[in-house]
Design a protein around this nucleic acid. Structure first.
Lengths: 358, 358
DNA sequence: GATGGCATTGAAAACGATTACATAATTGCT
DNA sequence: AGCAATTATGTAATCGTTTTCAATGCCATC
């Protein structure tokens, strides 16, 4: 009672100049201690009676918890980092959306970082994640960084997406690149193409793995694939294709190691004036919106993009529950979507069982 | 000296069990006070000599600042919120990248939120922003929320993007929708189209403004436009087009109020088997990747997407510097990119100066 | 030679929450 | 009835910084 009077007095002088209402003010308004307020809000052991009082006081005062203070004291940031090369790559856009949905669903925040495939930016952002004391990180590293990545050094768990690290080191969720590449190659071979080439990104393990998969699948048929490695951008891919198509010996079909490269490929082919698939077949990864609509439709491997993000988040949460468990790699399968860009070339000319296409 | 010995002893017993190294440890290692370390790190007035010592101690201890603590004490979150309907919309993807670039460049973090055009989620995320004590928010609100938005109530400045609020209330950076719509209409008319319809998103002011722009431009020529309002998704747009094309009287040209709607339109037109532009011309907003490559190429208004994000961030920073200055609305111009989807329909049949096309 | 101003430094308070610990009240058990 | 165990609550310490405030030393000035 005496206390209440004192506080009322305080209110008269203080209330007007107080900028933000804190847990203290709620406690005063509810006539309880700050600890009780904290417990009521955090689901601790509080009698129903006081809980009601606190809730009323919260509503009355318009209290909003200060997440920075909460994080500092509880040593729990409820924040994860998502580090990708460029959110404008539709693959990462979709993954990002899945990660964010899953994160918000369990009350976590997401900090998104774009590295532009630049190891320096990767290092900078990893450091930033440490300063943020993030709970964990979902990361699509460049090859350079993936090799020297030591998750135990970082202080938080890491789940790799799209790109793998040395086996057994880190949790990861990736596409079965060998399988996917094989699907593409087998499809192209079945359609009658033999001289198959490819453009692969040179910054990630993914580009390398998809290349290896193509090579392996071709070898099974006693064939060779000519591969070129480029920066994984539409611009680089377009230039590479234009150059390639000016050379004396040209490919019958071209495989792109991701959506951006495929986009550049198509642009390059158009610029060179070759018709698809009559003069050149095209296939690649990522079932982006435009692939269905461009030209005759582009044959692609569809990745389970949303699943990848959701699974990555799930693995991160599992890892947090059991930091000791051994590293896992989840390998998801892609689906071949055959479209006009790899239609049978011979169909345009003659019958369909030509012995030696072109 | 004596102190140093003591500290060495401390290190022996403490170092092993200390989880994280804080500013205190740095101070001890450098032989200065915590205040000096803080000042050395924050650029305060510190002698060159001590600054060196502190830097050495930071390197030696592997100190990493705790951003939560910093934010709590300094009352400055260095964080902004970016609230959009769906990051998978390429328009928002691009804007988001620009915002993030600009934010990181001035040492700020970005929290990204997807509302799915759902006012409830908008309210939830705005509240979250308050709890995060964000420095400011960049927001593309639904029409419903835009109307009842009171930035003074929120406690942080807001810059609207893509969508406007009641004039004079809030900073905003938007496209000149009337001008852009007029560009599209004039182009279609010049190409010989007369019976022009449109599909417009029904959740944002943008859809409404673009509709108004089309209507106004048509009226200038004594013509009417038939408009339909739909959820701004490819699915809704596809369905709407399929329905429309089954009706007795059909449009010669269709305008889409954004990239997603345009995408659905094209799908719907394809599904209905109409050829573009011979039977139906298509035009819309957002120069997304696929619009150049799909079918004959789609005529669109290109928005300065990166500029929009960068400008929004700039306005937010200016607003932070001068909270009192009056609200500003930056209106950027779109650029018409004419492509095959609006080629002259008569060219397909006969000469090009037909009096009454179709 | 005392005084005032300036620049540098340290001690301690503060930011706004959570949580360890102590206390009081209630319950269950013998 | 008495004692241990359990529960609800309050007090105070704590998280890791920044910032206020006072103290120190130095120089120039009168």
């Amino acid at each position: 009672m005496v206390l209440d009077l004192m506080h009322d007095h305080d209110n008269l002088t203080e209330n007007d100049c107080k900028m933000t209402v804190g847990i203290k003010d709620v406690a005063r308004a509810a006539g309880v201690s700050v600890a009780t307020v904290s417990r009521a809000l955090g689901g601790g052991p509080v009698s129903e009676e006081l809980r009601k009082k606190v809730e009323a006081a919260v509503a009355a005062t318009g209290y909003l918890p200060n997440l920075s203070a909460r994080r500092l004291r509880s040593q729990h940031s409820h924040t994860i980092g998502l580090i990708v090369s460029d959110i404008r790559n539709p693959f990462f856009t979709a993954v990002s959306r899945a990660v964010e949905d899953a994160a918000y669903a369990v009350g976590m925040r997401v900090i998104l970082c774009n590295t532009d495939e630049n190891p320096q930016k990767e290092a900078m952002y990893l450091r930033l994640m440490q300063e943020e004391r993030v709970t964990g990180v979902i990361f699509a590293p460049t090859r350079a960084t993936a090799q020297k990545l030591d998750p135990h050094q970082l202080g938080f768990p890491v789940v790799l997406i799209d790109r793998a690290a040395p086996p057994g080191q880190t949790d990861a969720v990736v596409l079965d690149n060998a399988e996917a590449a094989s699907l593409l190659v087998e499809h192209l071979l079945a359609q009658g193409y033999r001289r198959i080439g490819g453009l692969f990104g040179n910054t990630s393990t993914t580009g390398a793995e998809r290349h290896a998969g193509v090579v392996a699948a071709m070898q099974q048929h006693g064939l060779q694939a000519e591969a070129r490695f480029i920066a994984p951008t539409p611009e680089a891919a377009e230039q590479a294709v234009r150059d390639w198509l000016r050379e004396p010996v040209q490919p019958e079909a071209l495989i792109a190691s991701n959506g951006l490269v495929l986009l550049g490929m198509l642009r390059g082919a158009r610029a060179a004036g070759v018709s698809i698939p009559a003069q050149l077949a095209l296939a690649g990864f990522d079932n982006d919106n435009w692939t269905e609509l461009a030209g005759p439709g582009l044959t692609v491997i569809e990745q389970p993009v949303y699943d990848i993000g959701r699974t990555a988040m799930k693995m991160l949460l599992e890892r947090l529950e059991d930091p000791a468990r051994s590293a896992r790699k989840v390998v998801l399968s892609g689906r071949l979507i055959a479209r006009g860009s790899t239609a049978q070339p011979i169909a345009a000319h003659a019958g369909q069982q030509g012995a030696e296409p072109r």
